[in-house]
Design a protein around this nucleic acid. Structure first.
Lengths: 220, 220, 220, 220
DNA sequence: AATGAATGAGCGTTCATTCAT
DNA sequence: TATGAATGAACGCTCATTCAT
């Protein structure tokens, strides 16, 4: 067996493998996290490979063992944060039974995720404004559904939400979350839980299926 | 009179002046417009001086007759678009008497401005995510009021809107406009006028002063 | 006659011509003098055409009516200052009868010329260090004699000076003048007339023909 | 010991270290030496990064691994030559016992250093005329003493030299050395050792303490 | 796997010079 | 004669990426 040459036993080999794995994860994570912090402080353009290598404590060349190029770091960061957002939004919410409560729980939890991780908020904001976004959007267009739009689609199909395109709901819901988190982080006063609930209410009123209403919409 | 020396009449002088002015304006405008389109296609960082000079049909050095550096082009573009936004939002709206109608007219007109000028929308979005924003924000902080926050302040002072920080109203209102315009431009189906009105209604409901309500906010 | 068309009389034509001449001289002088001051403040490299045109109060293009290129301004400045140096050194000195007194008068007068015209001193110093020097030296090598080396040659031929190459005497004499002027201008304390005479004495002792001397030169 | 991991023995480690060191020194030296020769031929301004990289046989970017910018190359060159000058002047001279002999030996040795290294002479001459000089002069002003002025101060304190400002002695002594070396290099005929001694004698006579003299200084 | 010296295309910017007016 | 907008080659410098060790 190949591990015989270097290792006393299968267990020491395994231990080594695990150690290496963890080191690899450590190094990759270090690169990812350093990039995230650098983008928060210097933006996409100001985050150079040499800055990343310095902050991550690895040589510049080492970065290219883990990522084919600089864009790949950003893409991985983006995908990681997207997953975290998914967990943040639905981790607790899916335990609720009522659709409306699921929405409120999810909206608030995702909003708090950004409030507690400002560098992730800044990254996502910058990413959506950058050429990376359009590049990645094309790739994403091949993925027909994901958990976000499944949730909204479910709401529409079951009469909870107005029938409209997924993107629009997403814009309003996520736009609201991001605007709220931004204001909390950069504004003079932070929000209370109560404030967050009120804002979520506004959004919900906007996207929920309208009952036969005696409220007259203004049309000009 | 000074124009006598070189020109046959005041009118030929004026014609000359206008011609010169228009040529200057042509070249400067060409640089500005080329930059705008390039930013739409390649982002801030991807818009190089050599690309601008190529697209504008001028030598690279010529750009530096009209702008001290690359940042100055972007800043001028920003200020121009800000002014256009102001005109787009309030040009017609201020003719209305009722505050609520002013809001709807303004919201819709600004939304349409972005729908009809996608490159301006993309520029503003990128600008707000970039280091340029923070640079300019400091300068703007010295200007105590502008027409945008005057309008919202008026609404709060006169009981039309909930009392809150200017930045938050701006986030919700402009965030809504931008999200809507983006969806119209990049989404599969465009919006009708009716759709825009419905979205404006949602925003208005969010920011208007709440009447004593029997609607119970959900708090979790 | 051609002047009839524009001028009332020959005299008014002449007056115009003289005025134009003087304007031309004014403009050329303005360019020359501005260049001199700019070189004093910013060095050769830092003195740009646009700075000269600004300081001289003429358009950049106008400079090219008077000089074929930037180097020509510098060359003319050099030749002008060389002439002024000649006048400064020999203007009064040649009125003296005794060769030794001629030397002292000339040395002191040239030294004072630099002390009173620091920008000229700085120019000459920079010129001698620049590639212009080598360029011009080749042109000058065609001029076999000038007033400077004539004076030293005369001193050698008539037994006042040690017989040596002209360039060496020049180095020692002009090197002394420039070092002294520099010290006066940039040093903490200025020189008195008496100080200048003492330094001239040192130089004279160095270059004058040695009498039969009991002073033993050191040779190692 | 850390070298054990990669190298068979301390000697192979040392050999490796020396090899690496020497390679680094080779590349840095190549840049330095190429710059020196290019400045001799084209002046400061004419010595471009692309010329240096071409002559040194390295990529333009490589230069910036060894020097923060172009000025840093010139500053290092200046400091190196200053040190060489110090060694050239005092290396042998300090072995002499008599102050006067020390002066003659030092003067001649430094003069010969420049005669044998014309590119260093030209560099120093250009440096002293350039903005770099003033930049560095301010830094040097913080260093209260160096070996050059210590030597002259000693001479003044012990009655060998006239009491005067350090700068003046330096001007006369170094001005003489540089003028002599220049004449030797650019003049038609080179100097013999005897010639150098004679010139040194002239300088010495100028700066040495005057005995009670029946020689009358001329004052006009 | 890890390094970091080396690369060189490409960046933003400058500036002597030209030329239509 | 005088202008100054326009030019574009060339500058110093950056930085993502490569590769020998």
């Amino acid at each position: 067996m190949i591990f015989r040459k270097k290792f006393d036993s299968f267990y020491s080999y395994l231990a080594h493998r695990m150690n290496v794995q963890s080191e690899i994860k450590d190094k990759k994570d270090s690169i990812i996290n350093s990039t995230l912090e650098l983008i928060r402080d210097h933006g996409f353009h100001g985050t150079t490979i040499s800055l990343i290598s310095e902050k991550a404590g690895v040589a510049a060349g080492t970065i290219y063992h883990y990522f084919v190029n600089k864009d790949a770091i950003i893409l991985e960061l983006y995908n990681t944060i997207r997953e975290e957002m998914l967990v943040a939004m639905f981790g607790e919410a899916k335990k609720e039974k009522e659709y409306r409560i699921q929405f409120f729980r999810g909206w608030k939890d995702l909003c708090k995720y950004f409030i507690n991780n400002p560098s992730r908020l800044i990254f996502i904001e910058q990413y959506n404004c950058s050429p990376y976004f359009n590049l990645n959007k094309k790739k994403q267009s091949k993925i027909p559904v994901n958990q976000f739009n499944e949730f909204f689609q479910y709401g529409m199909d079951n009469g909870y939400l107005k029938k409209m395109e997924y993107n629009l709901v997403a814009s309003v819901v996520f736009g609201g979350i991001i605007a709220t988190a931004k204001y909390h982080i950069f504004g003079k006063f932070g929000y209370t839980d109560n404030d967050l609930c009120k804002i979520a209410n506004i959004i919900w009123d906007g996207i929920k299926r309208q009952e036969i209403s005696n409220k007259v919409s203004i049309i000009i």
